[in-house]
């Protein structure tokens, strides 16, 4: 089955990103397809490569990047939500005249249409948030 996922909260404060990750890992294990993970609201904070958790804690951002690489999953940060919260890739950073970018590998920044398109294309849409 094809799953679309929306993650609406950032990492660490709320459990949503962990639940979403564990759900996705289990779905892949069972042979399902993850059509897209769309990060919205504070969920875009899942996509900053500057995250540096303590050694003995899970690295939520790195975990997403590795999942994307291993399973070729489409991880999309909403552009409007990302701009508000200071998450940018090199192009976005340049376009907005910023002096740095911080998007983690495996993510891409795109519009809200990606959420709608996932909702239409996926067999199941599952929302994780606060």
């Amino acid at each position: 089955m094809k799953f679309g996922i929306m993650v609406s909260e950032g990492p660490y404060t709320h459990q949503a990103a962990d639940t979403a990750y564990n759900f996705i890992a289990a779905a892949l294990e069972k042979g399902h397809e993850i059509y897209r993970v769309f990060f919205y609201h504070d969920g875009v904070n899942n996509g900053t490569r500057l995250t540096t958790p303590p050694q003995d804690d899970r690295n939520i951002v790195k975990r997403w990047s590795e999942l994307a690489e291993k399973h070729e999953i489409d991880l999309v940060l909403c552009v409007a939500a990302a701009q508000r919260r200071g998450i940018a890739d090199a192009d976005e950073s340049k376009r907005n005249g910023k002096d740095a970018d911080n998007m983690a590998p495996g993510f891409r920044i795109s519009g809200l249409g990606q959420l709608l398109e996932a909702s239409i294309q996926a067999d199941r849409m599952v929302v994780f948030g606060d």
Partner: peptide
């Protein structure tokens, strides 16, 4: 597609960003 809006405005951003989804979604 049913947009389920259960949160008040201003205290959190969900209402505003939900509205943005609905407006963009209209094109589909």
């Amino acid at each position: 597609i049913m947009y389920v809006n259960r949160k008040a405005p201003y205290g959190t951003i969900y209402a505003l960003e939900a509205l943005e989804v609905v407006l963009i979604g209209a094109a589909f």
